[in-house]
Design a protein around this nucleic acid. Structure first.
Lengths: 210, 210, 210, 210
DNA sequence: CATGAATGAGGTTTCATTCAT
DNA sequence: TATGAATGAAACCTCATTCAT
């Protein structure tokens, strides 16, 4: 929605969008593998199948590539969550939350290396770009708040601060990406999802069957 | 004892230890402010009050400085937690946990920029160095496990997987450093500590007064 | 007639001339502001309202644009002087010289930034193009020689080397463009014209009323 | 006297001065021949007998090399004139002026390619550096003013605006460098000096023997 | 123990020019 | 005629590391 003012020499905005999406897609595995700083423009151009000069036809600086990639991936991630919340809107809040946690945690685990990258390289974005990312992250949190509030209204949940519970849920979904190396040997994503689901429900559910 | 295979040209191991501690201390604010990659050897040498050549008398590469600094800081952090657990060993597990969470979360919040740095730059360590860090992190988790197990034995806690609960507690202590920008406006560390304490207790305490 | 060996893909020589004049006009403010080297082909094309590719339809290289622009502007300048000399042909040589100096110095002062550009970028022309410029500059000098000789014939002037006096007059007209920053604070073009007029006359006039 | 704040990584200010002088000397013929913009850092480093990296040990940017070179050469030029004025202080103003014009014009003719370079590349200096150059140029003018005023006091000269006469003398000394290609074929520096001397004297001398 | 001058490979970015459409 | 996407060489600059002193 917002206009990221990345420089381009082209007037064909359709082409620019397409190529930038291509760049974002092409660069992702490279960035995730080597990190942003260690990836050179030469690497990026090669991965995109472009010459270095031509790459700069669509971007203004290396930093813009980072922004492009983060935007692109975060967009999918956000959309994925919004879709889920919508999909389970007919379920009871508890049922919906269980399903959504399941899908979210597994989904995030599927892009664990991107999640790590995200935490590592966010600082390399310029403030304006970072602001956009943050804003979208807040929308994500709002989605969960919506669901949690519905649960409070039905009496299934009892929550003092829905925003913080939403924050907790999302942050814990990242834990698999950031810290699974510390988990017990043999601990699976199934175990993890089950554990966190119980954990979350036990602290908000009024029907505590523990 | 340690597998610290950092090169030095000195035989005076006491001097080496002392100088390396000095380097670790001197470089920390620089690294935290500018990031590891953007900090040059020249910057590091200046911050340490050494010449570049002499710096290489005590280290083998720039990466070693990162390792030194992370080791040094993590060591304090780990020691701080171990001390706390010991200090509260005479308290009831519930009381101890409340106290420890309070101190831990506030302590971590006090070094929030180091915590961010930690998540951001861990990837720049060589696997061997990363392994050492991980190992110590596991010891930290073990401290909490110890406390939680004590609570299970007294019947105050009911926990299926103490390792994962310990992991959760520690990870949530990092959340203030990594994501507080997403919290509600005006939300304080006091609010945060209170919220997470309730949250954690409600999911493990047998005396559920919710 | 001219040795303008600038490449074109067009056979329509009228169109070519027209377009080249357009290019010369369009590019002048850009060149004067940013300098020749710092102005890119993209800048030039944009200023001309053409595509880069189409620009190359009428020129062979970036250097040709410089030549075009210098040619064009110098042509006006030369024509302007020739016209003046003709206009004042019925005046006495002294009167004519006074008038012409007045108009010339003020005229040149009006295009001071072009004059500076001229001195700065002449070296970027190829020898052949530079030769053409030089030739026209010599014609300009010849105009003044004509006037000065007329004054010698009437006995109003006494001059050993009319060519060099003509050179001096023209060069001094450039001084306002090249060195006025060194002049006394508040010194105006009026002051300047008056000063140089007196200065020149005093050294060639037989009727020395100093 | 003024502190040109050119970046260096060295603390040995003596070495820095020496090396910078070396750079200024080494780069001059290159700059004069190819122009500033067309001379690459690689060229400069080669001419200085340094690696590119080491060159940047003593300077902060390519522009600094230009400043160094202009400063260095202008310093000699200025010093040369000041010396002359001092040397001829015991002569009568007229005699002194004749001698000084002779030496100045010939001196400047000897560095004609630097003089052209000076006019061409001054625009590439940053304002601060340009200011320093301008200031020294003004000091030069002041030297001539001193001499001319002495002549006015003895009654040998009659001058309304000594500053502008001084400006004229200096500017005309540059003409040989900038415009001698337009002079009559076979016209020598001897002819030129003689012509301008007569020209200047005739417009300021009270003893007009024309 | 200590210095800092020196290196050279590699980083990001620009730009005149062409050519398929 | 007219377009502008595409190229690749070359530009300026940085920096981890070494070595003579």
């Amino acid at each position: 929605m917002k206009k990221n003012s990345i420089r381009t020499y082209s007037n064909n905005s359709e082409l620019v969008s397409e190529r930038r999406a291509h760049i974002a897609r092409s660069v992702a595995p490279l960035f995730v593998k080597k990190g942003y700083q260690r990836t050179s423009i030469r690497d990026i151009a090669r991965a995109c199948g472009m010459s270095m000069g031509h790459l700069y036809y669509y971007i203004g600086s290396k930093e813009d590539v980072l922004q492009l990639m983060m935007d692109y991936d975060q967009h999918f991630y956000t959309y994925f969550v919004q879709q889920m919340v919508a999909d389970y809107s007919s379920f009871s809040p508890t049922e919906a939350l269980i399903k959504i946690i399941d899908e979210l945690f597994r989904g995030v685990a599927g892009i664990h290396d991107f999640m790590r990258f995200f935490y590592q390289e966010l600082k390399n974005l310029q403030p304006a770009a970072r602001e956009i990312i943050m804003e979208r992250e807040k929308q994500l949190i709002a989605e969960f708040e919506k669901l949690l509030r519905r649960g409070c209204e039905t009496g299934e949940f009892k929550i003092d601060n829905v925003t913080m519970v939403a924050n907790n849920i999302i942050f814990l979904s990242h834990m698999w990406s950031l810290r699974r190396y510390l988990f017990p040997r043999g601990y699976t994503i199934d175990d993890y999802v089950h554990f966190q689901t119980q954990n979350i429900l036990s602290s908000i559910s009024t029907n505590n069957k523990k």
